[in-house]
Amino acid sequence: MASAPQLPLFYNGLEPLSSETHAGYRMRSVNAAPFLVGQHAVPLTVEEFPMVQRFMPIVFATGDEPVPLALMGLNEGVNVFIGEDGTLTEENFYVPAYVRRYPYMLARLRPDAQELSLCFDPTAPTVGAFDDGEALFENGQPTEFTRNILTFAEQFEQAAQKTGQFVKELREMELLMEGEVSIQQDGVEQPFVYRGFQMVNEEKLTNLRGDQLRKITQSGMLPLIYAHLFSLALMRDIFSRQATQGKMPQPQLV
Protein backbone atom coordinates (compact mmCIF):
# COMPACT_ATOMS: atom_id res chain seq x y z
CA MET A 1 0.00 0.00 0.00
CA ALA A 2 1.31 3.45 -0.86
CA SER A 3 2.35 5.85 1.87
CA ALA A 4 2.57 9.64 2.05
CA PRO A 5 3.32 11.61 0.01
CA GLN A 6 2.40 8.98 -2.58
CA LEU A 7 -1.18 8.36 -3.57
CA PRO A 8 -3.05 5.38 -2.09
CA LEU A 9 -3.28 2.11 -3.99
CA PHE A 10 -5.38 2.38 -7.22
CA TYR A 11 -5.51 6.20 -7.17
CA ASN A 12 -3.75 8.16 -9.92
CA GLY A 13 -4.90 11.51 -8.58
CA LEU A 14 -7.24 13.13 -6.05
CA GLU A 15 -9.57 16.04 -6.68
CA PRO A 16 -12.14 17.44 -4.21
CA LEU A 17 -15.71 16.90 -5.41
CA SER A 18 -17.27 20.32 -5.96
CA SER A 19 -20.86 21.35 -6.74
CA GLU A 20 -19.43 24.16 -8.88
CA THR A 21 -16.63 22.45 -10.79
CA HIS A 22 -18.46 19.14 -11.16
CA ALA A 23 -22.07 20.34 -11.38
CA GLY A 24 -22.79 18.26 -14.48
CA TYR A 25 -20.84 15.17 -13.46
CA ARG A 26 -22.37 11.72 -13.33
CA MET A 27 -21.19 8.28 -12.30
CA ARG A 28 -21.63 5.36 -14.60
CA SER A 29 -22.49 1.91 -13.30
CA VAL A 30 -19.92 -0.74 -14.21
CA ASN A 31 -19.55 -4.46 -13.60
CA ALA A 32 -15.77 -4.56 -13.98
CA ALA A 33 -12.75 -3.23 -12.12
CA PRO A 34 -9.80 -3.11 -14.55
CA PHE A 35 -7.60 -1.61 -11.83
CA LEU A 36 -7.81 -4.94 -9.98
CA VAL A 37 -6.31 -6.97 -12.83
CA GLY A 38 -2.97 -8.27 -11.58
CA GLN A 39 -3.44 -6.83 -8.09
CA HIS A 40 -2.61 -9.62 -5.65
CA ALA A 41 -3.25 -7.88 -2.30
CA VAL A 42 -5.96 -5.45 -1.17
CA PRO A 43 -6.11 -3.52 2.15
CA LEU A 44 -8.81 -4.58 4.62
CA THR A 45 -10.55 -3.23 7.69
CA VAL A 46 -11.00 -5.49 10.71
CA GLU A 47 -14.78 -5.35 10.37
CA GLU A 48 -14.40 -7.31 7.14
CA PHE A 49 -12.40 -10.21 8.62
CA PRO A 50 -15.43 -12.48 9.27
CA MET A 51 -16.55 -12.23 5.63
CA VAL A 52 -13.13 -12.22 3.97
CA GLN A 53 -11.91 -15.31 5.82
CA ARG A 54 -14.35 -17.39 3.76
CA PHE A 55 -12.76 -16.43 0.45
CA MET A 56 -9.19 -15.13 0.86
CA PRO A 57 -6.21 -15.43 3.20
CA ILE A 58 -5.79 -12.46 5.54
CA VAL A 59 -2.22 -11.41 6.30
CA PHE A 60 -0.46 -8.29 7.56
CA ALA A 61 1.97 -6.24 5.50
CA THR A 62 5.56 -5.91 6.64
CA GLY A 63 7.03 -2.66 7.92
CA ASP A 64 6.53 -0.38 10.90
CA GLU A 65 2.86 0.30 10.16
CA PRO A 66 1.44 -3.01 8.90
CA VAL A 67 -2.05 -3.07 7.44
CA PRO A 68 -4.26 -6.13 7.01
CA LEU A 69 -4.37 -7.44 3.46
CA ALA A 70 -6.67 -9.81 1.60
CA LEU A 71 -4.62 -11.98 -0.75
CA MET A 72 -6.17 -12.40 -4.19
CA GLY A 73 -3.00 -14.09 -5.39
CA LEU A 74 0.26 -15.32 -3.87
CA ASN A 75 2.51 -13.46 -6.29
CA GLU A 76 2.75 -9.90 -7.54
CA GLY A 77 0.85 -9.49 -10.78
CA VAL A 78 -1.50 -12.42 -10.09
CA ASN A 79 -5.17 -12.15 -9.16
CA VAL A 80 -7.02 -15.46 -9.33
CA PHE A 81 -10.48 -13.91 -8.85
CA ILE A 82 -10.41 -11.28 -11.60
CA GLY A 83 -10.48 -11.96 -15.33
CA GLU A 84 -8.39 -10.08 -17.87
CA ASP A 85 -11.36 -7.76 -18.52
CA GLY A 86 -11.62 -6.82 -14.85
CA THR A 87 -14.75 -8.86 -14.09
CA LEU A 88 -15.10 -11.24 -11.17
CA THR A 89 -14.73 -14.91 -12.02
CA GLU A 90 -16.78 -15.89 -8.95
CA GLU A 91 -20.52 -15.40 -8.47
CA ASN A 92 -20.38 -15.71 -4.70
CA PHE A 93 -17.52 -13.51 -3.55
CA TYR A 94 -16.85 -10.73 -1.06
CA VAL A 95 -15.32 -7.60 -2.60
CA PRO A 96 -13.35 -5.61 0.01
CA ALA A 97 -14.64 -2.16 0.92
CA TYR A 98 -11.36 -0.59 -0.20
CA VAL A 99 -12.20 -1.69 -3.76
CA ARG A 100 -15.85 -0.67 -3.54
CA ARG A 101 -14.88 2.80 -2.28
CA TYR A 102 -12.86 3.61 -5.43
CA PRO A 103 -12.77 6.17 -7.07
CA TYR A 104 -13.84 8.14 -3.99
CA MET A 105 -12.18 8.70 -0.64
CA LEU A 106 -12.03 11.20 2.20
CA ALA A 107 -8.82 13.22 2.28
CA ARG A 108 -7.35 16.37 3.81
CA LEU A 109 -6.97 19.07 1.19
CA ARG A 110 -4.04 20.54 3.13
CA PRO A 111 -1.70 18.91 5.67
CA ASP A 112 -2.95 21.32 8.36
CA ALA A 113 -6.65 20.85 7.53
CA GLN A 114 -8.82 19.49 10.34
CA GLU A 115 -11.69 18.28 8.18
CA LEU A 116 -11.72 15.56 5.56
CA SER A 117 -13.23 16.32 2.16
CA LEU A 118 -14.84 13.92 -0.28
CA CYS A 119 -12.45 13.52 -3.19
CA PHE A 120 -12.33 11.34 -6.29
CA ASP A 121 -9.76 10.10 -8.78
CA PRO A 122 -10.24 12.31 -11.86
CA THR A 123 -8.64 9.66 -14.07
CA ALA A 124 -11.36 7.11 -13.23
CA PRO A 125 -13.44 6.32 -16.35
CA THR A 126 -16.63 6.02 -14.30
CA VAL A 127 -16.91 9.70 -13.25
CA GLY A 128 -17.29 12.59 -15.69
CA ALA A 129 -19.59 14.92 -17.61
CA PHE A 130 -21.60 12.07 -19.13
CA ASP A 131 -25.13 12.07 -20.55
CA ASP A 132 -25.87 8.82 -18.72
CA GLY A 133 -25.32 7.63 -15.18
CA GLU A 134 -26.24 8.81 -11.69
CA ALA A 135 -26.13 12.59 -11.24
CA LEU A 136 -23.81 13.76 -8.47
CA PHE A 137 -25.43 17.19 -8.03
CA GLU A 138 -28.83 18.75 -8.63
CA ASN A 139 -29.53 22.46 -8.25
CA GLY A 140 -26.13 22.94 -6.66
CA GLN A 141 -26.73 20.32 -3.98
CA PRO A 142 -25.42 16.75 -3.61
CA THR A 143 -27.92 14.14 -4.75
CA GLU A 144 -28.96 11.23 -2.55
CA PHE A 145 -26.52 9.11 -4.57
CA THR A 146 -23.63 11.41 -3.61
CA ARG A 147 -24.75 11.55 0.02
CA ASN A 148 -24.65 7.75 0.09
CA ILE A 149 -21.11 7.84 -1.33
CA LEU A 150 -20.11 10.25 1.44
CA THR A 151 -21.70 8.05 4.11
CA PHE A 152 -19.84 4.99 2.83
CA ALA A 153 -16.55 6.93 2.75
CA GLU A 154 -17.13 8.10 6.33
CA GLN A 155 -17.90 4.57 7.49
CA PHE A 156 -14.74 3.33 5.79
CA GLU A 157 -12.68 6.01 7.52
CA GLN A 158 -14.09 5.01 10.91
CA ALA A 159 -13.37 1.34 10.18
CA ALA A 160 -9.82 2.24 9.13
CA GLN A 161 -9.25 3.97 12.47
CA LYS A 162 -10.49 0.86 14.31
CA THR A 163 -8.16 -1.23 12.18
CA GLY A 164 -5.21 0.96 13.08
CA GLN A 165 -6.00 0.52 16.78
CA PHE A 166 -6.35 -3.24 16.34
CA VAL A 167 -2.92 -3.51 14.70
CA LYS A 168 -1.41 -1.21 17.31
CA GLU A 169 -2.60 -3.50 20.10
CA LEU A 170 -1.30 -6.58 18.29
CA ARG A 171 2.10 -4.95 18.08
CA GLU A 172 2.07 -3.79 21.70
CA MET A 173 1.43 -7.37 22.78
CA GLU A 174 4.13 -8.51 20.34
CA LEU A 175 1.73 -10.95 18.69
CA LEU A 176 2.85 -10.30 15.10
CA MET A 177 5.69 -12.32 13.60
CA GLU A 178 7.23 -12.82 10.17
CA GLY A 179 5.11 -15.30 8.27
CA GLU A 180 6.16 -18.26 6.15
CA VAL A 181 4.10 -20.78 4.21
CA SER A 182 5.56 -23.81 2.45
CA ILE A 183 3.48 -25.51 -0.26
CA GLN A 184 4.53 -28.74 -1.95
CA GLN A 185 3.25 -29.14 -5.51
CA ASP A 186 2.83 -32.62 -6.96
CA GLY A 187 5.65 -33.49 -9.34
CA VAL A 188 7.89 -30.68 -8.11
CA GLU A 189 10.86 -31.62 -5.97
CA GLN A 190 11.26 -28.38 -4.02
CA PRO A 191 8.34 -26.77 -2.14
CA PHE A 192 7.27 -23.23 -2.88
CA VAL A 193 8.06 -21.07 0.16
CA TYR A 194 6.25 -17.76 0.64
CA ARG A 195 7.54 -15.03 2.93
CA GLY A 196 7.33 -11.25 3.08
CA PHE A 197 4.21 -10.94 5.23
CA GLN A 198 3.29 -10.95 8.90
CA MET A 199 0.88 -13.13 10.84
CA VAL A 200 -0.22 -13.68 14.42
CA ASN A 201 2.07 -15.90 16.48
CA GLU A 202 -0.23 -18.66 17.74
CA GLU A 203 2.21 -19.76 20.44
CA LYS A 204 2.36 -16.27 21.94
CA LEU A 205 -1.42 -15.98 21.64
CA THR A 206 -1.86 -19.21 23.62
CA ASN A 207 0.58 -18.03 26.28
CA LEU A 208 -0.92 -14.59 26.87
CA ARG A 209 -1.33 -13.52 30.48
CA GLY A 210 -4.84 -13.74 31.88
CA ASP A 211 -5.33 -9.96 31.92
CA GLN A 212 -4.20 -9.66 28.30
CA LEU A 213 -6.47 -12.48 27.19
CA ARG A 214 -9.43 -10.88 28.99
CA LYS A 215 -8.66 -7.58 27.31
CA ILE A 216 -8.68 -8.95 23.75
CA THR A 217 -11.72 -11.10 24.51
CA GLN A 218 -13.76 -8.22 25.92
CA SER A 219 -12.68 -5.85 23.13
CA GLY A 220 -13.74 -8.30 20.42
CA MET A 221 -10.20 -8.75 19.12
CA LEU A 222 -10.02 -12.51 19.72
CA PRO A 223 -12.58 -13.58 17.08
CA LEU A 224 -10.86 -11.30 14.56
CA ILE A 225 -7.49 -12.87 15.34
CA TYR A 226 -8.89 -16.35 14.81
CA ALA A 227 -10.59 -15.25 11.56
CA HIS A 228 -7.13 -14.24 10.36
CA LEU A 229 -5.53 -17.51 11.50
CA PHE A 230 -8.27 -19.71 10.02
CA SER A 231 -8.05 -17.85 6.71
CA LEU A 232 -4.41 -18.84 6.23
CA ALA A 233 -5.54 -22.31 5.21
CA LEU A 234 -6.78 -20.70 1.99
CA MET A 235 -3.18 -20.10 0.91
CA ARG A 236 -3.21 -23.57 -0.64
CA ASP A 237 -6.49 -22.84 -2.38
CA ILE A 238 -5.02 -19.70 -3.97
CA PHE A 239 -1.93 -21.69 -4.94
CA SER A 240 -4.12 -24.33 -6.60
CA ARG A 241 -6.08 -21.66 -8.49
CA GLN A 242 -2.85 -20.15 -9.78
CA ALA A 243 -1.66 -23.54 -11.01
CA THR A 244 -5.02 -24.23 -12.71
CA GLN A 245 -5.00 -20.82 -14.39
CA GLY A 246 -1.44 -21.30 -15.65
CA LYS A 247 -0.10 -18.60 -13.36
CA MET A 248 2.56 -20.70 -11.77
CA PRO A 249 3.83 -19.03 -8.61
CA GLN A 250 7.37 -18.23 -7.64
CA PRO A 251 8.62 -18.51 -4.06
CA GLN A 252 7.90 -14.88 -3.20
CA LEU A 253 4.88 -13.09 -1.72
CA VAL A 254 4.44 -9.41 -0.94
Rank of each mutant, 00 (worst) to 15 (best):
E84L: 09
T146L: 15
V193K: 08
G13N: 07
L109M: 14
V167T: 09
N207S: 05
L224E: 03
A4K: 14
A97I: 00
V200F: 03
A159N: 06
F145W: 12
A23S: 15
R236L: 01
P16M: 11
T146N: 14
T151E: 00
L74T: 06
Q39P: 00
V254E: 10
I149K: 06
L170V: 14
R209Y: 00
F197S: 10
E138A: 12
T123M: 13
F10G: 10
E169R: 15
G73N: 11
E172S: 13
E91F: 11
A2I: 02
G128E: 12
S29N: 13
A243Q: 10
D64G: 11
A135D: 03
L116Y: 11
L232P: 00
G83P: 01
E154N: 14
M105I: 10
L229M: 11
A243N: 02
I58W: 03
R236E: 13
Q250C: 06
A107Q: 03
T244G: 01
A227P: 02
G38Y: 03
T21A: 15
T126L: 08
A233N: 12
A153M: 09
F60Q: 02
L9K: 07
D237R: 10
V42E: 02
V254Y: 04
R241T: 05
N139T: 09
L74N: 06
K162S: 12
N79K: 08
M105P: 04
V200M: 04
E138T: 13
N201M: 01
L88I: 00
E138R: 14
L17A: 12
S117E: 13
Q165M: 13
R101P: 00
G140A: 10
D112F: 08
V188W: 00
L116E: 09
G77C: 11
G140I: 15
P66Q: 01
R171G: 04
A107R: 10
E20C: 00
V80F: 08
M51P: 01
P103H: 06
A129T: 03
R214W: 04
P191T: 09
E180N: 14
R100P: 00
L150P: 08
L7A: 05
V127C: 02
K215E: 13
I183V: 15
N148R: 15
L36K: 07
V254M: 10
E144S: 15
R241S: 11
L253Q: 06
F60Y: 14
P5S: 10
Y11R: 05
L71W: 02
F166W: 07
Q6F: 02
Y94Q: 07
Y94T: 12
L170R: 01
E90W: 03
F120K: 11
F156W: 09
G210H: 07
Y25P: 05
G73P: 08
Q53P: 02
S231K: 12
A160G: 05
P249T: 03
H228P: 04
L205Q: 08
E48K: 10
Y226D: 05
M177F: 02
V52A: 14
L71D: 00
N12V: 03
T244Y: 03
P96W: 05
Q190L: 11
G246D: 04
D237Q: 09
P8G: 02
R28T: 04
G246E: 08
R171Q: 12
E169M: 14
L176Y: 04
V99R: 07
E134F: 07
G246Y: 01
L175E: 05
H228F: 06
N79W: 03
V30H: 15
L106V: 12
M221T: 01
T62C: 06
P223T: 09
M221Q: 15
P191A: 04
Q184A: 11
